[in-house]
Amino acid sequence: MDIIKTNQLTRKFDDFTAVDDISFSVKKGEIFGFLGPNGAGKTTTIKMLTTLLYPTSGSASIAGHDIIKERNDVRQNIGVVFQEPALDIELSGKENLDYHARMYNIPREKRKERIKDVLQLVDLENKQDTFVKFYSGGMKRRLEIARGLMHSPVVLFLDEPTLGLDAQTRRAIWQYIRKMNKEEQTTIFLTTHYMDEADYLCDRIGIIDHGKILVMDSVSNLKTSVGNDLITLSSTNMGDLIKRLEKESWIKKLKNQDNFLTLYVEKGDEKIPLIIEIAQKLSIKIKSISVRKPTLDDVFLSYTGRTIRENNGKVNPKDMIHPRFHRG
């Protein structure tokens, strides 16, 4: 059963198209991820699916409810963890949860029970009476995840759940996300620009860039689509080597980036001697060569033609015009 279904969803801000004609569906119990650089349209998609923004055109439904016509049914069925913290810092952790439960009309007895459960899930029982302003970044994030789960939503939206957290906290948060997916059978839709996060958590991912979904598949399928192995090398006289290697049919794809040549091949170990042989014939010196399994980084590179990091660093003039619409 499809829990999330979108059909040609589009959102424009003036003449800028943040989300461009995207269609996808997420199945029950799945962890689905949107992977893309900042400004790709991830947050805008989440805001539309969570009824905070109206789509310019297209439609979508959550658990069978239309996001435009049945906003309140949608709201009843979703939990959201926003990119920026959305907690009341003047209240304690427990109060934040209690207020949330009241807004979702959870009866008193159930409320107490749920607060205990979710606090336990994210290990915040000892901090429940502390004001949120004294929480660390990781604790706030955990509290938000707990809050998102309070009303047992059918689907939980997580917008960059580990943005700006240290490695240890990130790992812990990943554990919680997996745990709740398993224990509460919550369908999870998350966005991220971290490859390792998408790789570790998601059953399926969609790569999104400039508001469009470039590809959507399971993580392992995406990796095989790139090639079984990647050979990265650097050499003298790179141009000649590229020209020569382009003629070889066993190289599926060839990319030159930052003075490193990446070859997408099958059985990489056996190809290394071949490459060295070719290079020697041209009297080109190979400085370094290595073979590895593809990562999501390579998948991203192969579909967008650039790495996700390089994209994050670059600001195109258009982004400067509407900075607040470009949160991913």
Partner: peptide
């Protein structure tokens, strides 16, 4: 500014 408004606006109220 502190984002809490979003939390209120996605609630079914």
């Amino acid at each position: 500014q502190f984002g809490f408004l979003q939390e209120v606006l996605v609630a079914p109220i």
